[in-house]
Amino acid sequence: MNTLNNKVALVTGSSGGLGKAIAERYAALGASVVIHYNSHKEKADEIVNKITSAGGKAIALGGNTTKVAEIEKLFTDAKAAFGKIDIVVANAGIEQVELPVTEIKEEDFDKVFTINTKGSYFTIQQAAKHVEDNGRIIYVASSTTVFAVPGMAVYGGSKTAPKYLVEVLAKEIGHRGVTVNSLIPFAVDHSGIFAQPDSFPDLRKSLLDSCPMGRLADIEDVANVAEFFASDLSSFVNGQHLLVNGGATQ
């Protein structure tokens, strides 16, 4: 069984969705967890209460990941609370779908790239500065970075740039025993844009039709891979991008 005893994990965007599932998984494996939020403090506090009530260790820290100074403070505060950081998951982001290229506005581009690209870049940068030797840095990308999906040019593009950063950083700090990898999920049911079962029905059907397993990803499917990347099992996996998509072609 994997164990993260005596490890400290910081998961951005973990007040809900995939980030919440990953943070809770790490806590269940024995890690002390930093639940990061931007605007949903009450949700972050609920997760902390759930973890601590079960005997785990967790704190909630806020911060806008589009602001470098706030990212820096997030890492400083996390280390002040737990003394170190062993695992960082750069998960915070937003989705944008069903927006054809001809209808993209400048403000659409700026918003999505600021949150998804700039935010992830500088989160990963701070992770490289602060993570302990033999630590783990994990970027949550998107299957739209592998398969082109109509209506997702801006979203897929914003998630692609940090994947290159993953490969570069893996080479720059690999000598410290730190691994840097991307987790690339398919569309996730009951999360994000598919939080409601009747949301985006045409897109849902198209994605389901492309997947030989006939379903979207579950939150736990993604948490399983996040567990692998955080554990000793992945100690020689570095600079890689792992698709969690059931063999889908979209």
Rank of each mutant, 00 (worst) to 15 (best):
N6L: 07
N6W: 06
N6Q: 15
N6A: 13
K7P: 03
V8Q: 03
V8L: 04
V11G: 02
V11D: 02
G17I: 12
L18S: 06
G19S: 12
G19K: 09
A21E: 11
I22L: 09
E24G: 05
R25Q: 09
A28G: 13
A28H: 10
H36F: 01
Y37N: 04
Y37P: 04
Y37A: 03
S39P: 04
S39G: 07
H40G: 03
K43C: 08
K43M: 13
A44W: 09
T52Q: 06
S53D: 11
A54V: 04
A54Y: 04
A54P: 00
A58P: 13
I59F: 04
T65L: 15
T65C: 12
T66Y: 04
K67M: 11
I71A: 01
K73L: 13
T76Q: 05
D77F: 03
A78H: 01
A78L: 03
A81Y: 00
A81P: 02
V88K: 00
V89E: 08
A90S: 14
A90G: 01
A90W: 00
I94N: 03
E98Y: 03
E98F: 02
E103R: 09
I104Y: 02
I104L: 07
I104G: 01
K105V: 10
K105L: 13
K105Q: 15
E106T: 14
E107Y: 14
E107F: 12
D110C: 07
D110S: 13
K111A: 06
F113R: 00
G119P: 06
I124T: 00
Q126K: 14
A127V: 00
K129C: 00
V131S: 07
D133N: 15
I137H: 02
A141S: 15
S143F: 06
T145L: 08
V146H: 13
A148G: 14
A153I: 05
Y155A: 02
T160N: 04
T160Y: 01
K163W: 05
L165T: 09
V166P: 04
V166I: 12
V166F: 07
K171M: 07
E172I: 08
I173T: 02
G174W: 07
R176S: 05
G177A: 12
V178T: 01
N181E: 13
N181F: 12
I184S: 03
P185N: 05
A187C: 06
S191R: 02
S191I: 08
G192P: 15
I193K: 07
I193V: 15
F194D: 06
A195H: 12
A195T: 13
P197G: 11
S199I: 09
F200T: 08
L203H: 03
R204S: 09
S206H: 08
L207H: 04
S210T: 06
C211H: 01
M213A: 04
R215N: 13
L216N: 10
L216K: 08
D218C: 09
D218I: 08
A223K: 01
N224K: 14
N224T: 12
N224V: 11
V225H: 10
E227V: 00
S231N: 12
D232E: 14
L233H: 12
S234Q: 09
F236C: 02
G239K: 00
H241S: 15
L242D: 10
L243I: 09
N245E: 15
G247R: 01
